[in-house]
């Protein structure tokens, strides 16, 4: 898929960067991201946000789950504080991802400031693809390659956000509804696929089941409560099974 590790094509910065951009075309996850961001664009439109707002969220938040949580919390009348807490809880998972990706990207001499952009690009897709692709990239070229891959993925998602937003505004009702349905479908299946351990699968199932129950209480923080309860319950089962 890539030039050999000792190929002259890896020389310089621009060339590995563009190899990274092109690598976007070699993964099925790009298609999943595209579908997800079509949905996010449509959701932003139907929740009353501007296109510039939606694009800024894709560029600067760059985490699908956080964007969905943000848009649906604010869109259904949640406060800034509620949205910020839900977003930050969903984003904690970025911490271990960054922690596991950066050692693959850096050399001993790489200064921290050169890792700031690769760290921003880290999200679930980057995490999966870096683990797969970086071993095929010469170590000194990995920062440029990762920046290229990140730029490519963000660009695809900016296009998808725009397209979803515009389509939601102009499509017949049925097709617009189909685009909105992309979000729960794509997230449900990609989360299910990433949940390899029992504790994660349990958290997914309990999270789906607890939210409707919690919503009946009308607390205003249903998502937070059901998420923390379901996650803690799943962790409890995991802890109990390990002890037994």
């Amino acid at each position: 898929m890539f030039p050999a590790l000792d190929s002259p094509k890896w020389q310089g910065v621009a060339s590995p960067y563009f190899i990274g951009v092109k690598a976007v075309g070699s993964t099925i996850l790009t298609l999943v991201l595209f579908a997800t961001y079509l949905g996010i664009g449509a959701l932003a439109h139907d929740s009353g946000f501007s296109l510039g707002w939606a694009l800024s969220s894709t560029l600067f938040v760059w985490a699908g789950p956080a964007q969905i949580i943000l848009i649906s919390t604010l869109g259904t009348g949640g406060t800034v504080v509620q949205a910020a807490i839900a977003v930050t809880l969903s984003a904690i998972r970025l911490f271990p991802m960054v922690v596991s990706v950066l050692p693959m990207v850096r050399t001993r001499e790489t200064p921290m400031r050169k890792l700031a952009l690769p760290a921003h690009f880290v999200a679930v897709t980057m995490w999966i693809e870096c683990s797969r692709m970086l071993p095929q990239v010469p170590r000194e070229r990995r920062v440029a390659f990762t920046n290229g891959l990140g730029t490519g993925l963000v660009s695809v998602c900016l296009i998808a956000t725009t397209l979803g937003y515009v389509l939601a505004a102009n499509l017949p009702e049925l097709l617009a509804a189909a685009i909105l349905l992309l979000t729960p479908l794509a997230f449900l299946f990609s989360t299910a696929r990433n949940s390899r351990q029992l504790v994660d699968r349990l958290a997914l199932v309990l999270g789906l089941a607890l939210f409707p129950l919690m919503a009946m209480l009308h607390t205003g923080v249903d998502i937070l409560l059901s998420g923390v309860a379901a996650g803690t319950l799943a962790y409890g089962v995991h802890w109990w099974r390990r002890r037994a």
């Binding site: 789950p65 969905i68 809880l89 997914l204 309990l206 789906l208 996650g231």
Partner: peptide, 22 residues
């Protein structure tokens, strides 16, 4: 990770149970 997964699951359920827009 479990809590983050469950929060996302809750949002998926929210979109399905209380669907936005069209």
């Amino acid at each position: 990770r479990a809590t983050a997964t469950a929060i996302l699951a809750g949002v998926i359920a929210q979109i399905l149970v209380f669907p936005p827009g069209v």
